[in-house]
Design a protein around this nucleic acid. Structure first.
Lengths: 252, 252
DNA sequence: AGGCGGCGGTTTACGGTATATACAGTTGGT
DNA sequence: ACCAACTGTATATACCGTAAACCGCCGCCT
């Protein structure tokens, strides 16, 4: 389906690497060779190891040599399985997405809120478990691997009972992952080391410039950044669901 | 306020660089020296040049030597003004955020929807003008520069007439930037080169695996990804505003 | 059975990155 | 006038991704 030794980038970045090799990789549509020594690795195993590394030490720590070192092979060995690092990251994302969300029995109408809730929570869990997903999926074209499509499919399915048309369902999906990713980012910020130090510095700074940011100081005095037990994910989700409900109600 | 020659990272990454130097930089609280030659540059000018470079060639193209080359100085010269690259990126973000949004006369209640709309649109414009903002602000703790705080302040101010408490206003703000960033990402994806090529490949792939993604195929047949003239930003914004309205209505 | 060619892994090398360190030239305060 | 502070440079280190050439293994074909 795709030739194995395809090299066409000139030595710089991506420039123009054939998307088809990446797709073949993601979908496992590689024709495996017959002759030659048995490969020690697979793209899957490499991606899994790299993802684990990223979980432990962050995405920046994922380098070809470190990943290869984990297998006891040289860095260049990986290039027999993966066209380059960008493709490896893509595989890492796909790897970490798992088998897709477990959705409740949809069946009845009116339960679409619960279904969407379940989807969103599980998606948020994935992002929480792998904070590097945020940067790995920032920019660049994605949502092409089978597992990512599975998530998309599940979300669209959960929205079918709403009666929204396809375009609207898609836009609600965008709203949902936007929420998930944003909350994940917020939490990643806060779970960082020295978070308390930063908070202290920020509070001090704000106090010194209170008059420049009246609404912010007022909101802070009103408890804006105090933890009040309300999950921002749940709050946002409720807002979105209410918004969707408003469309449905207004149209029928 | 902050000593100028502070170096404590061992040669690796960030590790532990003093946050106070960054804050002093962002807020212009550097005490400027008296003796010695007049500096040719300023952090601001460097950040502006770097941002322009990023606008033209992308964030990856921003390297110390390229930025320095634009001024005709050596790469190391920049380190007299900026502690390191991460701080430079932070400055770039701050630079690009401009003077903050121009908000309409709030005055009357009930116009908060218009105010929030104006805020969101302008924020989206910034992201659209500088796509690298997405990756530059992915992960890492932010929202500490005066300009970013200005945006936050404006959003919170716009939400004051809603009667929501501080924590809720903050959560709505999170919802809004989540929307903006997500839409920006979506648009960046689509305006990429070879976008058509990718779409073709994706459509082909989906057709071959239609049975695995029933909801997705159904949604596509229903026009999910056809451009239908509805701005996804407006759609999401309406959903969020409706959601907020539901909270207000339900509580009073 | 033999060998050839596809393939896995290594080594080497190149150009790029951030940035530590040591230095030279310039300037203002004393 | 001199010294100390400051700016910019040159040099060096340690990484990074990856191109290219190479060697040894192995299954298919003759």
């Amino acid at each position: 389906m795709v030739e194995r030794d395809s090299v066409r980038s000139k030595g710089q970045q991506d420039e123009t690497r054939d998307p088809r090799t990446l797709l073949a990789l993601l979908w496992g549509e590689q024709e495996q060779p017959t002759r030659g020594p048995k490969p020690k690795l697979t793209p899957r195993r490499i991606a899994a190891a790299a993802a684990e590394l990223a979980d432990r030490e962050g995405l920046d720590a994922v380098s070809m040599s470190k990943v290869a070192g984990g297998f006891g092979v040289s860095a260049m060995a990986l290039y027999r399985y993966v066209p380059g690092k960008t493709e490896l990251v893509e595989l890492m994302v796909e790897e970490v997405m798992g088998e897709g969300p477990e959705m409740p029995e949809s069946g009845e109408d009116g339960h679409w809120r619960a279904a969407v809730r379940a989807w969103t929570r599980q998606c948020a869990d994935v992002y929480a478990a792998h904070p590097w997903l945020l940067t790995a999926t920032a920019l660049r074209r994605r949502v092409l691997g089978p597992r990512q499509l599975r998530w998309l499919d599940a979300a669209l399915a959960a929205l079918e009972p709403t009666g929204l048309d396809g375009a609207q369902r898609h836009r609600v999906f965008l709203l949902l992952i936007g929420l998930v990713r944003n909350v994940a980012q917020q939490q990643a910020d806060h779970e960082e080391e020295q978070s308390a130090e930063w908070d202290r510095l920020a509070a001090d700074l704000l106090a010194r410039h209170a008059e420049r940011f009246p609404a912010l100081t007022k909101a802070m005095a009103d408890g804006a950044f105090r933890a009040d037990g309300v999950d921002p994910l749940e709050f946002g989700l409720d807002r979105i669901l209410d918004g969707v409900e408003a469309v449905i109600g207004g149209r029928e």
